[in-house]
Design a binder for these strands. Structure first.
Lengths: 354, 354
DNA sequence: ATGAAAGCGCTAACAC
DNA sequence: GTGTTAGCGCTTTCAT
């Protein structure tokens, strides 16, 4: 054996075996034109040298890094863990690594993330928009570099970019329809900044369901906020000042639904008898509150899976003219006690992680 | 302007300006020996060319990728998000990218993750051990490549590797002491596989606190399981078969504490009056249950921060003889209603994400 | 203050 | 079935 080097390369192996580096490379990559004998010898020498492949060198040479970039607004909700799991599940098999960036809901950091990922020469980017992103040039730029870009959850239809979303309209519709069927007549809605498509869609679904069930749309029952816990509390307190209390709340986030639940309980208002509640996202904590919170599940992990699959497709079809794809997943209403006045509907099987 | 190329390199810029590529490189990197005039010209040309730096090429040349690998057992708990945030917070400033791998608690996938990260030539690895990892050769190998390896939360003292953990012993001690001070005499404990140091430590803290408060250690009050929700339920059901019900449960996970809480409520047993409960990890859902669950906060984000800081130190001090560092963070007992029989102690300020 | 040249480790023509 | 050669894009001596 040679003198032990810290970093062995294919050249070290080649020298040891008196063959060419290219042969070593081919052997290591399972090229069928290399004899089994050579392959075995190379594998053995590689082990002896403690050889470590150098993906970066290969990436530089190949023009593909086998790295996918994932951009998430923030890593603090269950949502994003699930997305990452979904992405990993699909892409680990295809031998990709996941590089992750957070934007903290800041469009500037979002652009910086794209920049960082592009200079790391990721083979694709899977991203969810920051709430306030209104300029999409950084995404167009990424796309123009010829790599697949796929948005999930928070996206924008006007971009020529594939995206996977849930049907927010339908999710809201189902939630409100469920409440109406439970006999609720004054259904309030917590929403967010209306420039964000998902919240606009949910509001649309809310309105449609009201209409379809013969309920009037009352502006004073719609409260806009940032949908955090404290926002939910304040929104509920605001509603309680109305001459007539609403008999249901459909909140566009679980956290704000939770805030409403807390305030109602503090005021000894019965849930769901006096006020029924449905949240959105089906975060794990919803199943542990008292009463457990009904919520619209958005299949986060599935979104991650699907986005990854689209990526794999798009990276293959580099030849064809690009046609952006929109995949809409069906949301699922998970009914728990917070909205179950009449025990008609069948409960879904409960799992902590989706 | 030149004909638009898909990928501009420093050579394109150099040619355009009739200077050398090396000058462009220096200008782009802010080398002080380059005249301001040249710098401006280069910046301008770079913009015109839509130049994208190529980190991989630089990495290959420099022998540093400016990428840190993070290995986590699973992305499904809040824990994960917090760690990633903690790591990002510190390392983004130092211009690092985060590459993430999950092991799904599988030692084989853990070894594969190390392998993948090493071949991606990450500059360091921050990892938490899979529960069943007993062979640490892959970590030693990473270390032997000369890159910093830092473990967090689940680690092993015998490895010559820096790690940042919380004082699990103390966390458990505080929890049990608190229960004892509330007048509990028969305090049960949910634990996990005893080969895992953190659970062994917590059991030790449990025993010590019992002893210091004159309470006997009763083997039948210690239940070993995987500490998921269902495990907690079964453990509690098991305890309820005892001739005398315990008057408190200290669970080594929030999920199992939640399971106990559910079973107790289903049996109309009052919490905390008849049975007080304390969990471990301070997952977000603990503050939303009824009653809210007391828990030991392990400062996840801080662990991520600290691990990253150790990484930055170790990557600097490459010259000195390596001495592994152990940083022990103090856990914090967050007291909520599930264990508050006597309202003496001051509640901590509540925040959703730590 | 700038240029020329070498090389990081790998792979893919192209030869034979 | 294997070798030769060139080069991916960058940085960095060593010149001048």
């Amino acid at each position: 054996m040679e003198k032990k080097k810290t970093k062995a390369t294919i050249h070290d192996i080649a020298r040891e075996l008196n063959i060419a580096a290219s042969t070593v490379s081919r052997a290591l990559n399972g090229n069928p034109r290399i004899s089994d004998q050579t392959k075995r010898a190379v594998d053995k020498a590689a082990k002896a040298f403690n050889y470590q492949p150098h993906r970066l060198a290969a990436a530089l040479r190949n023009g593909k890094s086998k790295v996918i970039g994932v951009i998430i607004p923030s890593a603090d909700r269950n949502f994003f863990g699930s997305i990452v799991r979904g992405v990993e599940e699909v892409l680990i098999k295809a031998n990709y690594q996941v590089m992750i960036c957070q934007t903290h809901e800041d469009p500037v950091q979002e652009a910086a993330a794209i920049e960082a990922l592009l200079s790391s020469r990721v083979d694709g980017i899977i991203a969810s928009l920051a709430k306030r992103t209104e300029n999409f040039d950084h995404f167009r730029k990424a796309k123009s570099k010829g790599i697949p870009v796929i948005l999930f959850d928070r996206s924008n239809d006007e971009l020529e970019i594939s995206h996977v979303v849930i049907d927010d309209y339908l999710g809201a519709y189902k939630a409100v329809e469920h409440l109406a069927r439970q006999g609720c007549k004054r259904i309030a809605h917590f929403t967010n900044f209306q420039k964000i498509p998902i919240y606009r869609e949910r509001l649309r679904g809310y309105k449609a369901a009201l209409e379809d069930h013969g309920l009037p749309f009352l502006k004073e029952l719609v409260v806009e906020s940032n949908l955090q816990l404290e926002d939910g509390r304040m929104s509920m307190q605001q509603l309680m000042k109305l001459p007539v209390l609403p008999d249901a709340v459909f909140a566009s986030s679980d956290l704000s639904a939770m805030g409403a639940l807390q305030v109602l309980k503090e005021n000894a208002i019965k849930i769901p008898e006096q006020v029924a509640i449905v949240g959105f996202s089906n975060e794990p904590f919803t199943m542990f509150s008292d009463p457990p919170l009904s919520s619209v599940d958005q299949h986060c992990k599935r979104m991650g899976n699907t986005a990854s699959e689209i990526f794999l497709e798009e990276i293959k079809n580099t030849s064809d003219k690009f046609i952006p794809k929109k995949i809409v997943l069906m949301p699922e209403l998970v009914i728990r006690k917070s909205s179950m006045k009449v025990p008609v509907e069948v409960a879904q099987p409960e799992v902590l992680v989706n």
